[in-house]
Amino acid sequence: MTTVAVKPATMAQALTRALRDAMAADPAVHVMGEDVGTLGGVFRVTDGLAKEFGETRCTDTPLAEAGILGTAVGMAMYGLRPVVEMQFDAFAYPAFEQLISHVSRMRNRTRGRMPLPITVRVPYGGGIGGVEHHSDSSEAYYMATPGLHVVTPATVADAYGLLRRAIASDDPVVFLEPKRLYWSKDTWNPEQPTDVEPIGRAVVRRTGRSATLITYGPSVPVCLEAAEAAQAEGWDLEVVDLRSLVPFDDDTVCASVRRTGRAVVVHESGGFGGPGGEIAARVTERCFHHLEAPVLRVAGFDIPYPPPMLERHHLPGVDRILDAVARLQWEAEG
């Protein structure tokens, strides 16, 4: 029996491959954004696409996010499948009006006659030493807008599979790419990329019996590390990677919490008004009689994203997660 040597690939490479395969499979797929053509994107995710497919399929646009998304709306109206790159999380804000007033609601407004199959790729989150406006976790804004799917991968294989799913979706998808995982590596065979489940399915990354860590995107590896460290304390933690914030996979999350009886939600986004509040409420409403302790949140502080030399104090780390786990009323029964 021969085994194919599978080299480690980065998440960025998997994303590039997903774009390339999507463009090869469907001539309607157009990539557009700032610096995505000749340069290949500031994170090189669109590297080589303009060369392979031409500049009309992978287009350097003027520097104007509302214009990029607004013209993508018109292109989608005419049957194209635009994949838009917002260069950084905080640079996507000028496009909010297009996203909220048109992209999210065009299908509903027109009773399904004018769906907009647009993928909006947004590099997000901190941990890369970025200066101001380069490290925001903006997912709560997108989650609060009906009509959008909000998807974020945490592994190399998911990055490929979920982006292919997002581009193939007939609905608009905000595809949040965890910047600090762009260079994370995993064994992954680009010649045989595996499909993932449809958008909206969470996955249990690590099984455990003591408590569930509910997380997504850049916080998944942190939670897995925390789970390993927790073993020394005698806790066997389960880690659920949501993969999709909208639609939300209540079934997978609640099945896990019902098994473990305890839950902590972990994300970089601020806690107040952040995704964790919604998740904690959903879990409490559905699993109240299985819970041994209140659902806790470990989140970024409710502050503007800090300067890079201080960001490590802001980002949820292993210690802060374990401290939260310790507060899950282990001694309270009796």
């Binding site: 607004g70 993508a72 709306v73 018109g74 005419y78 009006e97 007033s101 407004r109």
Partner: peptide, 24 residues
């Protein structure tokens, strides 16, 4: 296109549609 209430937001749509038509 649908009547647009948010001002001027329909203009980039027109540009994108015209651009797409020309590409096709």
């Amino acid at each position: 296109a649908p009547l647009s209430t948010p001002l001027a937001t329909q203009l980039p749509h027109a540009v994108g549609l015209a651009h797409a038509a020309r590409l096709k």
